[in-house]
Protein backbone atom coordinates (compact mmCIF):
# COMPACT_ATOMS: atom_id res chain seq x y z
CA UNK A 1 0.00 0.00 0.00
CA UNK A 2 1.98 2.96 -1.29
CA UNK A 3 0.73 6.34 -2.29
CA UNK A 4 4.03 7.27 -3.94
CA UNK A 5 4.29 7.30 -7.69
CA UNK A 6 6.23 4.32 -9.05
CA UNK A 7 9.09 5.14 -11.42
CA UNK A 8 7.55 5.57 -14.82
CA UNK A 9 9.06 3.80 -17.81
CA UNK A 10 7.11 5.77 -20.43
CA UNK A 11 5.64 9.28 -20.61
CA UNK A 12 1.91 9.57 -20.13
CA UNK A 13 0.53 10.02 -23.62
CA UNK A 14 -2.40 8.55 -25.55
CA UNK A 15 -0.74 5.19 -26.07
CA UNK A 16 0.00 4.99 -22.35
CA UNK A 17 -3.66 5.64 -21.55
CA UNK A 18 -4.89 3.24 -24.21
CA UNK A 19 -2.71 0.52 -22.73
CA UNK A 20 -4.66 0.66 -19.44
CA UNK A 21 -6.44 -2.62 -18.86
CA UNK A 22 -6.26 -3.08 -15.10
CA UNK A 23 -6.98 -0.88 -12.07
CA UNK A 24 -4.19 0.01 -9.68
CA UNK A 25 -3.47 -2.64 -7.01
CA UNK A 26 -4.36 -0.06 -4.37
CA UNK A 27 -7.98 -0.43 -5.43
CA UNK A 28 -8.06 -3.68 -3.46
CA UNK A 29 -7.02 -1.74 -0.34
CA UNK A 30 -9.72 0.79 -1.08
CA UNK A 31 -12.28 -2.01 -1.31
CA UNK A 32 -10.99 -3.54 1.92
CA UNK A 33 -11.25 -0.27 3.84
CA UNK A 34 -14.63 0.41 2.27
CA UNK A 35 -16.01 -2.90 3.43
CA UNK A 36 -14.69 -2.28 6.97
CA UNK A 37 -17.41 0.32 7.28
CA UNK A 38 -19.92 -2.52 7.25
CA UNK A 39 -18.40 -3.68 10.59
CA UNK A 40 -19.45 -7.29 11.26
CA UNK A 41 -20.73 -7.70 7.72
CA UNK A 42 -17.36 -6.67 6.30
CA UNK A 43 -16.47 -10.15 4.91
CA UNK A 44 -19.80 -10.40 3.13
CA UNK A 45 -19.28 -6.99 1.58
CA UNK A 46 -15.64 -7.63 0.75
CA UNK A 47 -15.98 -10.97 -1.07
CA UNK A 48 -17.82 -9.63 -4.16
CA UNK A 49 -15.52 -6.60 -4.21
CA UNK A 50 -12.51 -8.89 -4.04
CA UNK A 51 -13.71 -10.75 -7.10
CA UNK A 52 -14.66 -7.52 -8.80
CA UNK A 53 -11.11 -6.28 -8.40
CA UNK A 54 -9.63 -9.47 -9.79
CA UNK A 55 -11.92 -9.65 -12.80
CA UNK A 56 -12.06 -5.94 -13.59
CA UNK A 57 -10.79 -5.21 -17.11
CA UNK A 58 -10.80 -1.95 -19.00
CA UNK A 59 -10.43 -1.38 -22.72
CA UNK A 60 -9.90 1.93 -24.46
CA UNK A 61 -9.81 1.63 -28.24
CA UNK A 62 -10.26 3.93 -31.20
CA UNK A 63 -14.05 4.02 -31.01
CA UNK A 64 -14.97 3.79 -27.36
CA UNK A 65 -14.38 2.36 -23.95
CA UNK A 66 -15.53 -0.77 -22.21
CA UNK A 67 -15.29 -2.37 -18.80
CA UNK A 68 -16.12 -5.85 -17.63
CA UNK A 69 -16.14 -7.59 -14.27
CA UNK A 70 -17.78 -10.32 -12.24
CA UNK A 71 -17.63 -14.10 -11.92
CA UNK A 72 -21.11 -15.25 -10.95
CA UNK A 73 -22.84 -12.18 -12.30
CA UNK A 74 -20.85 -10.93 -15.24
CA UNK A 75 -21.20 -7.42 -16.49
CA UNK A 76 -19.83 -5.68 -19.53
CA UNK A 77 -20.32 -2.03 -20.35
CA UNK A 78 -19.48 -0.55 -23.74
CA UNK A 79 -19.85 3.01 -24.86
CA UNK A 80 -18.49 5.17 -27.64
CA UNK A 81 -16.56 8.37 -27.05
CA UNK A 82 -19.12 10.33 -29.07
CA UNK A 83 -21.81 9.59 -26.48
CA UNK A 84 -19.90 10.84 -23.46
CA UNK A 85 -21.63 13.87 -21.95
CA UNK A 86 -19.98 14.53 -18.61
CA UNK A 87 -16.72 13.32 -17.12
CA UNK A 88 -16.48 13.30 -13.34
CA UNK A 89 -13.37 12.68 -11.32
CA UNK A 90 -14.28 11.46 -7.86
CA UNK A 91 -11.82 10.84 -5.08
CA UNK A 92 -12.88 10.12 -1.56
CA UNK A 93 -10.62 10.39 1.47
CA UNK A 94 -9.38 6.81 1.24
CA UNK A 95 -8.71 7.01 -2.48
CA UNK A 96 -6.74 10.21 -2.02
CA UNK A 97 -4.54 8.58 0.59
CA UNK A 98 -3.98 5.61 -1.70
CA UNK A 99 -3.14 7.93 -4.59
CA UNK A 100 -5.91 6.68 -6.84
CA UNK A 101 -9.10 8.16 -8.23
CA UNK A 102 -12.30 7.22 -10.02
CA UNK A 103 -13.10 8.64 -13.44
CA UNK A 104 -16.84 8.43 -14.08
CA UNK A 105 -18.30 8.73 -17.52
CA UNK A 106 -21.90 9.82 -18.10
CA UNK A 107 -24.06 9.31 -21.16
CA UNK A 108 -27.65 10.47 -21.67
CA UNK A 109 -29.26 7.58 -19.82
CA UNK A 110 -32.11 7.39 -17.37
CA UNK A 111 -30.14 6.73 -14.24
CA UNK A 112 -28.21 9.32 -12.30
CA UNK A 113 -25.39 6.92 -11.50
CA UNK A 114 -22.54 6.85 -13.95
CA UNK A 115 -22.63 4.39 -16.83
CA UNK A 116 -18.98 3.51 -16.64
CA UNK A 117 -16.54 4.18 -13.85
CA UNK A 118 -12.80 3.72 -14.15
CA UNK A 119 -12.06 2.78 -10.58
CA UNK A 120 -8.55 2.70 -9.18
CA UNK A 121 -6.94 5.00 -11.72
CA UNK A 122 -3.54 6.37 -10.81
CA UNK A 123 -3.41 8.56 -13.92
CA UNK A 124 -6.94 9.90 -13.46
CA UNK A 125 -5.96 13.37 -14.65
CA UNK A 126 -4.42 12.14 -17.88
CA UNK A 127 -7.33 9.75 -18.45
CA UNK A 128 -9.77 12.61 -18.02
CA UNK A 129 -7.92 14.69 -20.61
CA UNK A 130 -7.81 11.67 -22.93
CA UNK A 131 -11.57 11.15 -22.66
CA UNK A 132 -12.29 14.88 -22.84
CA UNK A 133 -10.52 15.20 -26.19
CA UNK A 134 -12.80 12.47 -27.58
CA UNK A 135 -16.10 13.27 -25.88
CA UNK A 136 -19.24 14.62 -27.50
CA UNK A 137 -19.00 18.30 -28.32
CA UNK A 138 -15.27 18.75 -28.01
CA UNK A 139 -14.58 18.60 -31.75
CA UNK A 140 -17.51 20.84 -32.61
CA UNK A 141 -16.24 23.48 -30.25
CA UNK A 142 -12.82 23.21 -31.83
CA UNK A 143 -14.23 23.29 -35.37
CA UNK A 144 -16.79 26.06 -34.92
CA UNK A 145 -14.19 28.75 -34.33
CA UNK A 146 -12.27 27.58 -37.43
CA UNK A 147 -15.43 27.57 -39.58
CA UNK A 148 -16.30 31.13 -38.68
CA UNK A 149 -13.19 32.46 -40.38
CA UNK A 150 -12.85 30.16 -43.40
CA UNK A 151 -16.50 30.29 -44.52
CA UNK A 152 -16.50 26.68 -45.74
CA UNK A 153 -15.24 25.74 -49.22
CA UNK A 154 -17.86 23.01 -49.73
CA UNK A 155 -20.72 25.50 -49.60
CA UNK A 156 -19.36 27.71 -52.42
CA UNK A 157 -18.82 24.79 -54.81
CA UNK A 158 -22.43 23.68 -54.15
CA UNK A 159 -23.57 27.22 -54.96
CA UNK A 160 -21.71 27.19 -58.28
CA UNK A 161 -23.43 23.94 -59.20
CA UNK A 162 -26.88 25.34 -58.49
CA UNK A 163 -26.14 28.50 -60.48
CA UNK A 164 -24.96 26.45 -63.48
CA UNK A 165 -28.12 24.33 -63.52
CA UNK A 166 -30.39 27.35 -63.23
CA UNK A 167 -28.53 29.12 -66.06
CA UNK A 168 -29.06 26.09 -68.29
CA UNK A 169 -32.79 26.12 -67.54
CA UNK A 170 -32.87 29.80 -68.35
CA UNK A 171 -31.12 29.22 -71.69
CA UNK A 172 -33.58 26.44 -72.59
CA UNK A 173 -36.60 28.58 -71.83
CA UNK A 174 -35.11 31.50 -73.76
CA UNK A 175 -34.74 29.26 -76.83
CA UNK A 176 -38.30 27.99 -76.47
CA UNK A 177 -39.61 31.53 -76.33
CA UNK A 178 -37.69 32.46 -79.46
CA UNK A 179 -39.02 29.38 -81.28
CA UNK A 180 -42.61 30.09 -80.29
CA UNK A 181 -42.31 33.75 -81.36
CA UNK A 182 -40.68 33.15 -84.78
CA UNK A 183 -42.95 30.26 -85.93
CA UNK A 184 -45.93 32.49 -86.64
Amino acid sequence: MTAEQPPRARPIDDTYIQAITRPDPNLLWHYALLSLMALVFAPIVFIPLFFKYHTLRYKLDGEGVSASWGILFRREVHLTYKRIQDIHVKRNFVERWLGIGTVEVQTASGSSSSELAFEGMREFDALREFLYRRMRGHEVAAASSANDTSGGGAATSRDAEIVAILSAIQADLEATRRAVETKV
Binding site: D86, I87, K90, R91, N92, G137, H138, A141, A142
Partner: peptide
Amino acid sequence: TDRSLRVRQGVWTFKEMTLTYAN
Protein backbone atom coordinates in the same frame (compact mmCIF):
# COMPACT_ATOMS: atom_id res chain seq x y z
CA THR B 1 -14.00 28.51 -20.49
CA ASP B 2 -15.47 29.12 -23.94
CA ARG B 3 -15.28 25.38 -24.63
CA SER B 4 -16.12 23.64 -21.40
CA LEU B 5 -17.36 23.94 -17.86
CA ARG B 6 -15.58 22.44 -14.86
CA VAL B 7 -16.93 22.40 -11.32
CA ARG B 8 -14.89 21.37 -8.29
CA GLN B 9 -16.52 20.59 -4.97
CA GLY B 10 -16.38 18.33 -1.95
CA VAL B 11 -14.12 17.81 1.02
CA TRP B 12 -14.70 14.22 2.04
CA THR B 13 -15.48 13.05 -1.49
CA PHE B 14 -13.61 15.35 -3.80
CA LYS B 15 -15.34 15.78 -7.16
CA GLU B 16 -14.44 17.53 -10.38
CA MET B 17 -17.06 17.55 -13.12
CA THR B 18 -16.34 18.49 -16.71
CA LEU B 19 -18.79 18.98 -19.54
CA THR B 20 -18.84 20.54 -23.00
CA TYR B 21 -21.49 23.04 -24.04
CA ALA B 22 -22.77 20.82 -26.85
CA ASN B 23 -24.32 18.62 -24.16
